[in-house]
Design a protein around this nucleic acid. Structure first.
Length: 878
DNA sequence: CGATCCCGCCACATT
DNA sequence: AATGTGGCGGGATCG
């Protein structure tokens, strides 16, 4: 104590003691002051500003935690390094001596250094964006606070926002469970849906934010009574008025966060100004808007924005209007959520209102619901996947109001979703489509799920792995009629990667997969979207390109593409693709707009072909996408197809229906699966009927991309044929469009070496080679992710397949490579989502062209180096 | 000087 | 009552 007091009688700026500072100092000036204690002494503020402060200081100084924290901090140093240099010196008193006073004035900790955004980055750096499903990470608030050297209060700010996006969930007091971004897209999708419901109309009109806002306000008042209003909101958030006692205000930060995100998601421009957001978010009465309240809201929004920025979901921009320049934020996160999002949640819960729950077994998601929460409702979002039983239990145990709230929240969400679906269905679709949704029950049972796409179908099999990352997932996906086979249950389940990349069939009888490439689909899609098209065009023109492109995220854009067939779209894609680091370049398709190509550079195309998958992987975004994205790839492909289709316009039959996504799927190639024999030994061989080379010829450019992919080679076959690659794959690899692929293929095989027995999986998307290169080229970091993700997948696939294929086991590496691209993270489940989305999405999509695009990429890049390392390490084990 | 937003008091919730 | 949460807004910094 003495020391502290002594420390400086009058430090210029009495800095409150901060543990952080101390640590930093130490770190910073190790040279000078090797001894930590000394610094500490110095640091402390001379005057005890507050009794508390002193106390804290003492405590911190004394507590081992602090020390640990310091040590730990060092780990993070890299992040701070830049900063440190400056600050370090100044602070120290000692330093001061050395240095000038001025420096010391600077004080190390500049405000920026203490910013919530930075803190959030550090926080996020501690956890993997895409944690393996198996690992559950619990976060101790106290621990984190001490490690990061901040008060717990600050951690709450971060966690609350993360919780609103379901990146974490509260397990117990002081304990949170880290879920990572696996569910992010789903969550966003849900928010988008909710947002559309709430604000949708507004959006339609919205031109300016301002207008929007006004309308919004009006609307709110008129149309929506508070009561309603609330619910919606609630739905987005855990709280609940009704059931649980409405707890206090507590929702604000979380709810605000969700609403804020919603605004972005429903905004065509993807830009939301702070003031507008504040106005909209001011609950209830908007009118009042007293200044102070507004001001407070803005403050909160900054807090939220900082966290979202750290997550790479938004970035700050300025909007200049008549009035002048206004602070605003632009959404740079994923715009389209195909993937997982719907999968689980969407359907089952929603569509079927079965809340309760029967199939617990199926999806974790549901399980949750079932299990404990049943009384409450469905599982909570949060809990969903990541949490496992255990967690859940924990969760549930408490049965605290909070949970209830969450539950409620979930239920609300679900309902919402249901509503949306209904809507969609009504509007859009064919009954047929719908039906699949209804299926839920079935799916639940079986492990695998089939997608219901009317058109293309793959049997997707869910591997056994229930636990996959897919969050919600769940349940089942509707099967295609054709796929009866799917039946596979567990062992044999074939695994399908969402995008298609590859299928593994254990030994199943024969499968026929059909997916026709459908140009029609495209058209349909287009048609569907037709209306949208216009808008879309506009929208794109305005917003989209810029945003999308800029973001490196990968998103591959593919999604967007579909929607936009137009050049803009093309551009986007290209752009996006271009963003992708991938080196691969393929000759791309001759699309429509040369521009696009030009812009994107050849790269884009290639990327597409490769697919998005690989690309995704490669790209920063990839990581995220990986799991959930499996679906995406499809989309992307679809998009491509669309493009192509337009050009080409094949007569393929499309299915017509529906949703874009469906459309997308169409292009899935049909596969013919031949089963060798029962034995696994042999792999089945699949080839796409459509895709035959000839098909390819069709559009060299396009088709290739379409094509599919996968082939499974029977063991026997292997010898002779090592692998069959889908044209697509090849194409990406080699620049040469058509023919090239063959070559490429061969290459791959050779690589694999798996020849004999090992089964080979090839994903269209995943071209091994390309992938690799791209990755390297792109991001060094990323590779890691993919690997990680992949690994799990692989494992599953293997497991699922189980075949005999030693190959899987034996050559994990190889497999990984292959898989990575496409499958990556996907789990069988993932596949489903896409479709769902389609269904659900349709409406949205129509409404919002932008939606198609994905921006997911962002996240990836966010991952800190640390994170990556962690992941990698974890992965490797796998 | 307006935009940001850190800081931490203090009310409410939970244990 | 103690402790956990987190609303809230003063006021320091930043630009």
């Amino acid at each position: 104590e003495n020391i502290y007091d002594r420390s400086r009688m009058a430090p210029k700026t009495p800095i409150k003691n901060e543990p952080v500072d101390l640590s930093k100092q130490k770190v910073c000036t190790p040279e000078r002051n090797p001894i930590t204690p000394v610094k500490l002494i110095d640091r402390p503020q001379p005057d005890p500003w507050t009794p508390t402060a002193n106390l804290k200081m003492l405590v911190s100084a004394a507590s081992p935690d602090m020390r640990d924290r310091e040590k730990k901090k060092e780990l993070f140093r890299p992040i701070e390094n830049s900063e440190q240099s400056d600050t370090t010196d100044s602070l120290q008193y000692d330093m001061v001596d050395d240095c000038t006073v001025d420096e010391f004035e600077k004080q190390r900790p500049s405000r920026k250094q203490k910013s919530l955004g930075l803190l959030c980055q550090k926080f996020l750096a501690r956890y993997p964006s895409y944690p393996l499903s198996t690992e559950k990470t619990t976060i101790s608030l106290d621990e984190v606070a001490s490690i990061l050297g901040v008060e717990r209060r600050r951690i709450y700010d971060i966690v609350n926002v993360l919780e609103s996006l379901h990146l974490v969930s509260r397990v117990a007091k002081n304990q949170y469970c880290w879920h990572g971004r696996h569910n992010l897209s789903q969550t966003l999708k849900t928010l988008q849906e909710a947002g559309e419901l709430q604000y949708g109309e507004l959006m339609t009109f919205q031109h300016k934010e301002q207008d929007l806002e006004d309308k919004f306000v009006e609307r709110k008042k008129e149309t929506i009574p508070e009561s309603q209003d609330r619910p919606l909101l609630d739905f987005s958030e855990p709280d609940c008025t009704s059931a649980s006692a409405n707890s206090r205000k507590d929702k604000s930060l979380r709810i605000m966060s969700q609403k804020f995100v919603m605004l972005f998601l429903i905004s065509k421009t993807k830009i939301v100004t702070l003031d507008i957001a504040a106005k909209i978010l001011i609950e209830e009465t908007q009118d009042t808007v007293d200044h102070s309240k507004f001001k407070t809201k803005v403050r909160r929004l900054y807090d939220i924005a900082n966290v979202l920025t750290s997550l790479g979901l938004i970035k700050k921009v300025h909007v200049t209007e008549e009035r002048g320049r206004k602070p605003a934020f632009k959404w740079i996160g994923p715009v389209e959520f195909t993937g997982k999002t719907d999968e689980s949640r969407g359907h089952s819960p929603t569509s079927d209102p079965l809340p309760g729950t029967q199939r617990a077994a199926c999806a974790p998601y549901q399980i949750c619901a079932t299990g404990k929460q049943r009384f409450t409702r469905h599982a909570s979002f949060n809990g969903t996947q990541p949490c496992e039983g255990t967690r859940r239990k924990v969760y549930s145990e408490p049965n605290s109001p909070r949970q209830q709230r969450q539950d409620e929240y979930c239920s609300k969400m679900i309902n919402l979703a249901a509503v949306c679906r209904q809507k969609i269905e009504e509007d859009t679709r064919n009954p047929s489509i719908t039906s699949p949704l209804s299926l839920p029950p079935v799916p639940g049972d079986s492990d695998f799920c089939v997608n219901a796409l009317p058109q293309a179908v793959f049997p997707v099999v869910r591997a056994d792995v229930p636990s996959l990352s897919l969050p919600n997932g769940i349940s089942s996906q509707p099967l295609h009629p054709s796929t009866p086979a799917a039946s596979k249950t567990e062992n044999g389940k074939p695994t399908l990667l969402p995008n298609q990349p590859f299928l593994c069939f254990p030994s199943s009888p024969l499968f026929m997969l059909c997916g026709s490439l459908q140009e029609n689909n495209l058209r349909e899609t287009l048609a569907t979207t037709g209306d949208v098209g216009n808008r879309r065009a506009e929208a794109e023109a305005t917003v989209h390109p810029a945003a999308c492109q800029k973001r490196s995220s990968c998103k591959c854009a593919s999604p967007s593409a579909p929607v936009d067939d137009e050049e803009p779209a093309a551009k986007k894609q290209t752009m996006e693709q271009s963003d992708v680091p991938l080196s691969l370049v393929v000759p791309k398709k001759p699309f429509k707009s040369p521009k696009a190509e030009s812009t994107a550079g050849g790269g884009c195309t290639s990327a597409e072909h490769l697919k998005d998958f690989p690309l995704d992987l490669a790209s920063p975004a990839a990581p995220e996408a990986a799991d959930r994205e499996s679906t995406k790839p499809l989309d992307s492909q679809e998009q491509e197809k669309r493009f192509q289709n337009k050009d080409l316009d094949e007569p393929s039959p499309g299915k017509e229906h529906i949703s874009k996504e469906n459309a997308n799927q169409p292009f899935l190639p049909q596969y013919l699966y031949v089963q060798p024999t029962a034995g696994l030994s042999s792999f089945n061989f699949l080839f796409s009927a459509n895709q035959a080379p000839g098909a390819i010829s069709l559009a060299a450019s396009q088709l290739p991309s379409l094509s599919v992919p996968c082939v499974v080679v029977p063991s026997a076959a292997l010898t002779s044929l090592p692998l069959v690659c889908s044209p697509t794959i090849t194409s990406p690899i080699s620049p040469v469009p058509d023919g090239s692929f063959s070559a490429a293929t061969s290459v791959n095989f050779s690589m694999s070496g798996m020849a004999s027995t090992t089964p080979v999986f090839i994903g269209t998307t995943a071209v091994v080679t390309p992938k690799v290169s791209p990755v390297s080229s792109v991001d060094p970091q990323q590779p890691a992710h993919p690997a990680l993700h992949l690994s799990p997948v692989l494992a599953r696939s293997c497991g699922a397949v189980k075949l005999d294929s030693p190959a899987c086991m034996g050559h994990p590496v190889t497999l990984l490579k292959l898989q990575q691209p496409s499958s990556t993270p996907l789990t069988p489940k993932s596949i489903r989502p896409a479709r769902h989305e389609a269904f659900f999405k349709t409406p949205g999509s129509l409404g919002d062209p932008v939606a198609w695009r994905k921006n997911e990429g962002n996240q990836t890049r966010n991952a800190s180096s640390v994170q990556r390392r962690l992941e990698i390490s974890s992965t490797s084990p796998d």
